[in-house]
Computed example of a mutant assay.
Amino acid sequence: MPEVVDQVALARLYGEPLFALPSDLYIPPDALEVFLEAFEGPLDLLLYLIRKQNFNILDIPMAGVTRQYLAYVDEIRSRNLELAAEYLLMAAMLIEIKSRMLLPPKKTADGEEAEDPRAELVRRLLEYEQAKMQAAAINALPTYGRDFWKAQVYIEQSLKPRFPDVSLDDLRQAWADILKRAKLVQHHKISREELSVREHMSIVLRQLQGRRFVEFEALFDATRGVPVLVVTFIALLELGKETLVEITQAEAFAPIYVRLAYAPS
């Protein structure tokens, strides 16, 4: 251990400070690798080279930019050939633009000068820069889970509970539910009613008294219930059986009429 206690250690080995490297220590060449800049693609690298040197994007010096771009591509080709394939396509485009700029400009059929070979590249760079700036602006907005968290506050309830107010609609709905449940469990009381066929035979005879024909449906009182209708029908059958009444019909599906049986004097 050194005599100076505040000396900065180079590293820690099994928890102990290391103030000097071992003489037999071997570090492979590729053990440590530092990336100063990380780019998202060829356009990102090209835009970085232009902005870093304050070049005018509308008047790009193709010779210098192409030379720097190819130097970076050669560097990544030695490390990641698959990644370098993306950048090689842009390198070929830069070389083509540089070659076209060395040639004398050709005029179009209308006599106007040809478009600048760098125009398409400039348009793509401007669109990419605009999209990158918008993405950075969106990323700078506060994001839940990264910049802030939802506040959660626990408030201990008081000893005296506070009940919520009940509206009239709540009471009406509760009353409707009670009635609905009551209908499901309600009881039905069945009472026995004694009906006399002979009595109803007399009632039918009184209805036919003094009348020539009475419609069959007019002899039944639907308001008194099904049992009375059944007994009245049986009384009519008994009267017909005893030939006290006549049941006639003019033709098929015609109205049915009932009258007292004809009794010769």
Results as ranks from 00 to 15, higher is better:
43 L>T: 05
44 D>G: 05
44 D>P: 04
44 D>S: 12
45 L>R: 07
45 L>G: 00
45 L>Q: 04
45 L>Y: 03
46 L>M: 04
47 L>A: 13
47 L>D: 07
47 L>G: 08
47 L>F: 06
47 L>P: 06
47 L>E: 06
47 L>N: 10
47 L>K: 00
48 Y>F: 05
48 Y>E: 00
48 Y>H: 05
48 Y>V: 00
49 L>A: 03
49 L>F: 03
50 I>G: 01
51 R>M: 08
52 K>G: 03
52 K>L: 07
54 N>A: 10
54 N>M: 09
54 N>F: 10
54 N>C: 06
55 F>L: 13
55 F>G: 04
56 N>D: 12
56 N>F: 07
57 I>D: 00
57 I>V: 03
58 L>C: 05
58 L>Y: 02
59 D>W: 12
59 D>I: 11
60 I>Q: 00
60 I>S: 00
61 P>T: 02
61 P>Y: 04
61 P>I: 07
63 A>N: 10
63 A>Y: 09
64 G>A: 02
64 G>Y: 07
65 V>F: 01
66 T>L: 08
66 T>A: 07
66 T>K: 08
66 T>N: 08
66 T>H: 09
67 R>S: 02
69 Y>L: 13
71 A>K: 12
71 A>P: 04
71 A>E: 09
72 Y>S: 14
72 Y>A: 15
72 Y>T: 09
73 V>P: 13
73 V>C: 14
73 V>E: 13
73 V>A: 14
74 D>Y: 11
75 E>W: 01
75 E>Q: 06
76 I>N: 01
76 I>S: 06
76 I>V: 12
76 I>H: 03
77 R>V: 14
77 R>P: 03
77 R>M: 13
77 R>A: 14
78 S>M: 03
78 S>L: 12
78 S>V: 06
78 S>G: 13
79 R>F: 11
81 L>N: 06
82 E>K: 08
82 E>Q: 10
83 L>M: 14
83 L>E: 15
83 L>D: 13
84 A>Q: 08
84 A>N: 04
85 A>W: 03
85 A>G: 11
85 A>C: 11
86 E>V: 08
86 E>F: 13
88 L>Q: 15
88 L>I: 13
88 L>A: 14
89 L>V: 12
89 L>A: 08
90 M>F: 12
91 A>F: 09
92 A>S: 14
92 A>K: 15
92 A>N: 15
92 A>P: 08
92 A>Q: 15
93 M>N: 13
93 M>I: 11
93 M>A: 09
94 L>M: 00
94 L>D: 00
94 L>N: 06
95 I>R: 15
95 I>P: 03
95 I>D: 12
95 I>E: 15
96 E>P: 06
96 E>N: 14
97 I>S: 01
98 K>S: 10
99 S>E: 14
100 R>E: 10
101 M>H: 04
101 M>G: 09
102 L>T: 10
103 L>H: 01
103 L>T: 05
103 L>I: 03
104 P>Q: 01
104 P>E: 05
104 P>K: 02
104 P>A: 10
106 K>E: 08
106 K>F: 05
107 K>E: 00
108 T>P: 01
109 A>T: 15
109 A>V: 15
109 A>I: 13
109 A>Y: 08
